[in-house]
């Protein structure tokens, strides 16, 4: 069982080929955001490097958001189209969960976050499930960081809270101010998503089916125009 895993949901581009017992190859960069240009060459390169023909793949895993709308779509459109054309399942894995998996084994709360502008973050709260998976506590959401931090303190009940993600740097001061010693920060090597984690999350869920047609991004928020339109509709200003 070989699985190809992809994450293009933020600045990081990560692609991996994994088998049940072993990661065959993984490539991760954290530099340019031209995922549309680079992704397919990376996949082609990794397939060749592992001697994998596309027909040998038993499934796909992809980070399906939240993140950059365009980035998420490039990953999802690519993974679902490859999976559909090969008639194999594709599994969407939360982009936040992928980062949380970098802290497998951490004894407190694991909080991955991506900046979502205007003081907001995409975030969720995870706990480690042994050493092979993480489990979300409640729901992932887009939330104002200053509202999120007190909620996390309540959930943690004195345990440490580990903040992960490339954008933690931007908010480190705010977090430390609010949570003090309870907030923990990791080495930069644990901040970026690794596609190999997606590969294993996908391997665990492949038997659930994973229809290519049904795979869609999880943006965690409506497009601005839709949100405005809905608000107007609720106010009775427009009729459909």
């Amino acid at each position: 069982m070989r699985v190809l895993a992809i994450d293009t949901s933020n600045l990081v581009l990560s692609v991996a080929v994994v088998e049940k017992e072993r990661v065959l190859a993984e490539m991760t960069t954290n530099q340019q955001k031209n995922h549309s240009v680079r992704l397919m060459d990376c996949i082609s390169e990794l397939l060749d490097a592992t001697g994998t023909s596309p027909e040998q793949l038993s499934g796909f895993g992809v980070a399906n958001g939240p993140g950059s709308y365009t980035g998420v779509r490039i990953g999802v459109a690519t993974a679902k189209s490859m999976a559909w054309s090969l008639d194999v399942p594709v599994i969407g894995v939360s982009s936040l969960e992928v980062v949380a998996m970098n802290a497998l084994g951490f004894p407190g709360l694991i909080v991955p976050l991506f900046d979502a502008r205007r003081g907001q973050v995409y975030s969720g709260c995870y706990r480690t499930n042994g050493l092979d998976s993480v489990e979300v506590q409640g729901k992932e959401k887009i939330v104002l960081l200053r509202e999120w931090l007190p909620q996390l303190r309540d959930m943690a009940q004195g345990e440490s809270i580990l903040f992960l993600g490339e954008d933690v740097r931007m908010h480190r001061e705010t977090i430390a101010q609010e949570l003090g010693e309870q907030a923990r920060f990791a080495t930069p090597a644990l901040n970026h998503p690794r596609a190999a984690h997606i590969g294993y999350a996908a391997l665990r869920r492949l038997q659930d089916g994973g229809s290519a047609h049904e795979l869609v991004p999880e943006y965690l928020q409506l497009a601005e125009a839709e949100a405005k339109w809905l608000a107007q509709k609720q106010a009775g200003a427009v009729k459909e």
Partner: peptide, 19 residues
């Protein structure tokens, strides 16, 4: 651009997967 990228990504994906 965002719309173009979906079709381009899908076309490239099928092209690579099926040669």
């Amino acid at each position: 651009v965002g719309a173009l990228l979906v079709g381009v990504a899908a076309a490239k994906a099928i092209s690579l997967a099926r040669g």
